[in-house]
Design a protein around this nucleic acid. Sequence first.
DNA 1: TGGAAATACGAAAACGATTAAGCGGCATGC
DNA 2: GCATGCCGCTTAATCGTTTTCGTATTTCCA
Lengths: 340, 340
Amino acid sequence: MVSMKDISAACGVSVATVSKALNDQNDIGKETKRRIRQVAEEMGYFPNTAAKMLKTNRSYNVGVLFNHEDYSGLTHDYYAFVLDSLKRTVEEKGYDITFVNTSKRRPGATSYLEHCKSRGFDGVAIVCTDFYSPEILQLVMSGIPTVTLDHLFNNVCAVMSNNVQGMQDLLTYIYKKGHRRVAYIHGLDSAVTQSRLSSFYRTAGQLGLTIPDEYIRMSPYRDTQGAHRETLCLLDLEEPPTCILYPDDFSAFGGFNAIQERGLRIPDDISIAGYDGIRVARHIEPTLTTLRQDTAELGKQVGEKLISLIEHPKTTLVETIVVEGHVFEGNSVADIGRKE
Amino acid sequence: MVSMKDISAACGVSVATVSKALNDQNDIGKETKRRIRQVAEEMGYFPNTAAKMLKTNRSYNVGVLFNHEDYSGLTHDYYAFVLDSLKRTVEEKGYDITFVNTSKRRPGATSYLEHCKSRGFDGVAIVCTDFYSPEILQLVMSGIPTVTLDHLFNNVCAVMSNNVQGMQDLLTYIYKKGHRRVAYIHGLDSAVTQSRLSSFYRTAGQLGLTIPDEYIRMSPYRDTQGAHRETLCLLDLEEPPTCILYPDDFSAFGGFNAIQERGLRIPDDISIAGYDGIRVARHIEPTLTTLRQDTAELGKQVGEKLISLIEHPKTTLVETIVVEGHVFEGNSVADIGRKE
DNA sequence: TGGAAATACGAAAACGATTAAGCGGCATGC
DNA sequence: GCATGCCGCTTAATCGTTTTCGTATTTCCA
């Protein structure tokens, strides 16, 4: 690897001069600068990141925390799309992305924080993890620029998909289609689940819907089996709902199957709606009506906020950025044309 | 950040001794080593990766090339699952994963190779990219340990899903279900496509199937529109096939829709099969018969081979590792009980 | 007991960059 | 004529490690 020393030798100047030339400083002669840069180019020079890092304490590298002991982040459409967008965003600004090593089995395993400091990440995006772990708390409290996705900490920047508005829009849409008996199979307890659930209740109240307790059920996210089971329970009620909301699109497929097994048709006999807007939901008939979260925007916001925190720590607001989703109108919710 | 210097001061020894103690060298007293390690622990010491890298030329960091200008890597089920497995594999061995920055718009954009050298990656996994680009060639020729997925270069380690065997198994399975008129909508030209297509023809020959030219059609991978269109063409033939193979599961959904539009039922009226075995295909009815690729194994093999190349460059074989898939029997291929 | 070998540690030079400080030389101002 | 300032460059220190080599002390064996 050709270093600055090689260039300095080739040009007959000191390495300091080479450094300045390549960093485009201006206490250096124009002609000298030009010559040095040209020679550097010819010799195929590129900087040694490690050396630069050591000296400057900047890595132009951001960590991404994607824990998948329990959460299969990378293979989860929502997170994968957010990560994809995040990657594009930071790469365009000259940063690289490294995963924070979450394996506890690796040699010399340490905490997330130590790993981040050891690697010298300029910042870290906490995207998919157990936010209640003490390790995460330690990390966000450490002073390293940090942005979380879909979770709020005190004094930490966060990007959130607007679950309150999302659920409100979705339920309102369904209401406008004439549905009055709406069931909601919600996911396991989490901040996200709570937002959606309370928004569901509040919106229902505003719309004047009464939601019997047995219409509210629970099934883990992305668990088609569970959704299948709960759907059957709902269908077996004396007065079954005319529309079922699922924790996510994936679960909706489980409901889909259960409904088909009973010989019912979607949306003629019963309507369903998902949440997330994963790609495949738009590609199978009946296309799934769902609340499509704006993953591209979410990833972009996380990236931009993080880099802003890194580059302008003083002037960057510690805030929560809310990203709106929108109802994707598929064919899975019937218009049961209720005349008011 | 507490450094070795701090520890050496606290212990009254030299930094050299501290370094040796922490690296578990043995030209050092047992008691001294113990004491130093304890103090290091107490002071919350962790190594500065940049300094270590600079000195040792080892980063314990591998690059992953995931180009998504044209290929939507991260959001592609197949690649996402492989990456997930790769990540687990290398993390357990103490390596981190950094994406090779593929943005051409970033400040001071350079070639993949320069980026890799600059970052000091110990090796790089080339997972999802245009293998015909000169940049990739430059990278694999550079001498940096490299493993490719689903592409063969001379003298470069590769991990391949067995497309030949896979297609053979899938077609044979379909044949055994009694199908004699099988159409294949294949993907755009690539090494993978060619393997599958030639295996399709060869297997058909061995089984004594005659495949009319109009049964072979083309549609880009993961393009439901294209698959939809080509499916309609096939259905409109005078003698339509009894089973259609798609480039991938996603495309199969496009076919699925086209078939439903025509009022036909799967698998009663016509059978379909996908390729890949993405998760959702197992969760909607009719479940899709497909060739499920072993993404967990693929990722693991890429990771293990890469680390082996890094740690034992002399004794690691430059070879192609072939990973078998297997037919997933869904409900989308009818048994049309042909009596032989 | 003497000398060689083994042991335990330290000094110092790297690795490749950045950057503050310094230093001639020349032009400028009074 | 002399202080001053600027320009263009060099010197040298530094970031936190690793590693070679040297040396002092201890151990061992004849």
